[in-house]
């Protein structure tokens, strides 16, 4: 949100000359391991993917924590369960399946005798209807470059939640989590832009707009408060609000999406 941005800039302006930063040693105690599930299904032909791992000590090596041998199944409210196959350690896939928008989906992950379940509603896809580009001069710590505005027509009289993902030259840009609600814009044509992310003239972008449900929006917005800029972080960080039960971390998102490819240079030359 713009407001957060203002405060950030104001903070930075004051701290810029007066702060110093150094890496320190800090002893953190070890917590009991928790299961982490990242489950995504879409309205597209892409395989359903579930990643399962465990938490590890904060300063330890982060590899080798994938969880093998879990039983993962999915079913729509009135459907029969279909089972995932583990294609590599901790990676579970279900191919040749299609989810349809307008339905609730349920996922069960069974591991060491405990079943972790979550539900997610697949909203209708909301396509990008128009795009615009503008040059941003940058200030302070904010880089200069091109900003992309994606316009969508928000479905009226219902709450909608969106997440945008940008793949720049084939690589996901994860510097910020782009989330939007139609709280102030129900039924309008909404322009969705970037907070601090900028693109360069030579970039080729794939923009993906995900139509997500409220629980997934809550998950990512609470995730953002512990993973974003330090100055924006909350005073009392806590784990993001998961839609899984039994203390599992992570989320289950059933989303529909639209994708556009943009070459900044072509866009500028009017192609």
């Amino acid at each position: 949100m713009k407001l957060k941005l203002c405060i950030t800039i104001l903070s930075i302006a004051f701290f810029v000359l007066n702060s110093c930063e150094k890496v320190i040693e800090f002893d953190l105690s070890e917590a009991k391991e928790a299961l982490v599930i990242e489950a995504n299904i879409t309205n597209n032909k892409a395989p359903f993917t579930v990643l399962i791992s465990k938490t590890s000590p904060y300063f330890g090596d982060q590899t080798d924590n994938q969880v093998s041998g879990a039983k993962v199944s999915i079913y729509s409210d009135h459907g029969t369960p279909r089972y995932f196959t583990e294609v590599s350690a901790g990676v579970y896939k279900l191919e040749k399946t299609n989810a349809v928008d307008g339905y609730w989906y349920n996922i069960d992950v069974e591991y060491e005798g405990v079943t972790y379940s979550a539900r997610s509603f697949m909203n209708e896809p909301v396509p990008i209807v128009d795009m615009g580009i503008s040059y941003f001069d940058g200030f302070g710590f904010f880089d200069s470059g091109y900003k992309l505005n994606c316009y969508i027509r928000d479905p009226a009289n219902k709450e909608n939640f969106y997440r945008l993902k940008y793949y720049v030259n084939g690589k996901l840009n994860d510097s910020e989590i782009s989330l939007y609600t139609d709280k102030l814009f129900d039924g309008m044509v909404i322009g969705l832009g970037q907070r601090s992310m900028v693109f360069q003239e030579t970039d080729t972008l794939i923009v993906e707009i995900q139509s997500i449900d409220e629980a997934v929006y809550d998950y990512f917005s609470t995730l953002e408060t512990i993973s974003g800029n330090v100055m924006e972080q909350t005073a009392s960080p806590a784990n993001p609000i998961s839609n899984f039960n039994n203390g599992a971390l992570g989320y289950f998102s059933a989303y529909s999406f639209d994708r556009r490819t943009v070459v900044i240079k072509d866009f500028l030359s009017g192609k």
């Binding site: 953190l28 917590a31 990242e38 791992s53 590890s56 994860d174 512990i226 993973s227 960080p237 992570g250």
Partner: peptide, 24 residues
Amino acid sequence: VTFPNGKYVIDGKVIGYYTQRNGY
């Protein structure tokens, strides 16, 4: 102050795992 007691990966990013409020 609240600090993480562990970590995990979501969307390819390392996230802190919190188990106690103001435990540090």
